[in-house]
Design a protein around this nucleic acid. Structure first.
Lengths: 191, 191
DNA sequence: TTGCGCGGAGAACGATCGTTCTCTACTGTA
DNA sequence: TACAGTAGAGAACGATCGTTCTCCGCGCAA
């Protein structure tokens, strides 16, 4: 048990990179073993199955995403700036050379009803993000119905950036979010 | 060659339903054969490989999508109503029991760089939709930068509806689109 | 030094896949 | 009726996958 924790981390990180780059079903467990440098026997001692490993990968990505979002929204002064900072975060992400869309959406599309466990983690991530946005919208004094609209822009930006390879999607989304924020905070009417 | 054309249609339609419901890699060619009622030998006489069949499936879905969008936007009186009709179309679609997200996005996420041919069809579909929206935006007398924002809402709605199972995504997107249209047509400034 | 137990490398196994091949039965013609 | 050609049903093939098993070598107690 020399590096029990780091071995697990190496496996999850290697699997994450491979799954994200090539798709889950396209990656064999032997490729994970080679990339992580951890023998198959140990991998199967940590994870009961490939699906278990996939769940661990998604959960790690969830905490990484939450931390990334927090790191960019927390320092912003106002709730409005915090909301818009989300799109700056997306902009940076879209420009990374390894960007290939939202891993949760990709996994959901590929596994779909084939893996209930994976779908559950994906759904959790999306609802958590929605709640975070809803909190920021409330802090900004905007009506609650603005939150799902902002979420739509964020999700759409990820899709468009992935499929069309258009990194400007984040800027378009940010501009739209500003317009929606302006319209929602100018007059606080109920829909 | 009794029903050459209908045999091909049966194969493509059966493959489409299976691929969409379960994911491409999760469906074997034998399942397509069973669902279409067309022997494997004939399938491979029409399509050189499974990837070829996938491309045919995506192309059929593309024309179906185009026709569906046109059927709902064409009758609308004004360009503004045509744009908003897109979201009514999505609303109907999201409520179909077989809805499982955008097949193009799902396929892109699953195949990714693994199938260049499929990715190309997906990209074509998305750019064609973007151009259609851009045309309607121009007809509405709105500035060009509104178009990618509307597209973002449409794509985001499909993602959210699929992952969260929230069919109201289309209504939120429509409301946001109305706000953006109002803001863009009120004053025609350049960004 | 001599056993002993554990962990790693990789073979093995059963299943499934995409694709091809074989064999059988049928249709149309003399 | 006899025959040629085609098309369908399903077996077969090679590859790959997830998962398990075997065997070898190394570190440690007496």
């Amino acid at each position: 048990m020399t590096d029990e924790r780091t071995a697990r981390e190496r496996v999850v990180t290697a699997a994450d990179e491979l799954f994200y780059a090539r798709g889950v079903r396209a990656v064999g467990m032997d490729a994970v073993r080679a990339a992580a440098g951890v023998p198959l026997k140990r991998i199967y001692a940590m994870f009961a199955s490939k699906e278990d490993l996939l769940v661990a990968v998604l959960e790690q990505r969830r905490t990484t995403w939450d931390a990334g979002i927090a790191s960019v929204t927390d320092p912003a002064a106002t709730a409005r700036e915090q909301l818009l900072a989300i799109f700056d975060f997306l902009d940076d992400w879209f420009r990374e050379p390894t960007f290939r869309g939202c891993a949760f959406i990709n996994t959901y599309g590929e596994m779909g009803p084939g893996s209930a466990a994976a779908s559950a983690v994906v759904r959790e991530q999306k609802t958590a993000f929605g709640e975070h946005v809803a909190r920021l919208v409330a802090d900004a004094g905007a009506p609650a119905w603005l939150a799902p609209q902002i979420v739509l822009l964020a999700e759409g930006a990820q899709t468009v950036a992935a499929v069309s390879g258009d990194a400007d999607a984040a800027r378009h989304a940010r501009a739209a979010a500003e317009t929606l924020l302006d319209a929602a905070t100018r007059t606080t009417v109920s829909a």
